[in-house]
């Protein structure tokens, strides 16, 4: 029997304009929130492993660290097919950086001792792409990122990783932490029954004390990343417009422009 933990996060809805609060250096997360869309690919991957029988999965558990509102993201995760969910919430977690979040998640995962941990490739707000790797490090398990294909053979997973230069094929033995790329699948939509039943599935809410997590390693107390300032991205220089009056002349101008920049 296999247990899969899927890491999920509540993020501001993609339709909300996002801003950094300069007084705290943290993202302003007010407004409409939703389940991180990248996580739905991890949930889908877990469900496909379960439904195809590739792994003998008896449970998919959605796990999140976040404020009280994050239960909505967990409801969404179970409406998509997770069997139950765990919510770590504590005022002392506010301001956690990637390493702190990775530590807290790893501690939650140890309580569950799953065979596989799946995560989305990034969060839609913090966008570090690194939480999965931090979790793997704390667990001492192999960690893979940007996996877009998973083949199972017993306890061995053959994973295709999307890299800048092409694809890596990597074999790992379970247990492992895998962040999936959004090209891995097309997430499903929840059914009416799943939507209506989402609040009835077990949801365990834990404080740091409940989960025996060291408060000095998370939140403001434990953070190693320090925000120093922000600035607007530099404005792009205006492009050059070439009006096409005489085509032969226009072509010459374009060729000269490219030639100047040693592009041809």
């Amino acid at each position: 029997m296999t247990k899969i933990v899927v890491l999920v996060k509540e993020v501001p809805d993609a339709a909300v304009q996002k801003q950094v609060d300069s007084s705290t250096g943290r993202l302003d997360r007010s407004g409409e929130k939703t389940l991180n869309p990248f996580d739905t690919h991890a949930i889908e991957a877990a469900l496909q492993l379960k439904e195809s029988g590739a792994l003998d999965v008896d449970e998919v558990v959605a796990v999140t660290v976040g404020p009280s509102s994050a239960v909505k993201a967990l409801h969404k995760a179970v409406s998509l097919g997770a069997d139950r969910s765990i919510h770590l919430t504590d005022d002392a977690l506010v301001g956690s950086d990637v390493v702190g979040t990775g530590y807290a998640l790893a501690e939650l995962i140890k309580r569950e001792s799953p065979d596989l941990v799946l995560a989305g490739q990034q969060s839609d707000d913090g966008q570090s792409y690194a939480v999965g790797a931090a979790v793997a490090e704390y667990l001492g398990w192999p960690g893979l990122t940007q996996v877009i294909k998973l083949d199972v053979d017993g306890q061995t997973l053959t994973c295709e990783r999307q890299a800048e230069y092409g694809y890596d094929t990597v074999k790992v033995t379970l247990p492992a932490v895998i962040s999936v790329g959004d090209a891995i699948n097309e997430p499903r939509y929840p059914s009416l029954k799943a939507i209506m039943g989402a609040k009835k599935k077990p949801l365990e809410s834990l404080s740091l004390g409940d989960a025996e997590i060291d408060a000095s390693k998370v939140g403001e107390a434990g953070r190693k990343a320090v925000w120093t300032g922000s600035q607007e991205p530099p404005a792009k220089a205006a492009g050059e417009l070439i009006e096409d009056e005489d085509t032969a002349e226009t072509v010459e101008k374009i060729v000269a422009w490219l030639d100047d920049r040693k592009l041809i």
Partner: peptide, 29 residues
């Protein structure tokens, strides 16, 4: 960050429950 335009149908003026919001999103998807 991914951005998307809010659909007109998502207006919070029209009464929603969590479930009805999820239902609308699922139907839209």
């Amino acid at each position: 960050m991914a951005t998307r335009q809010r659909r007109l149908s998502e207006s919070p003026i029209v009464p929603v429950t969590d479930e009805r919001r999820e239902l609308r999103d699922a139907v839209a998807q």
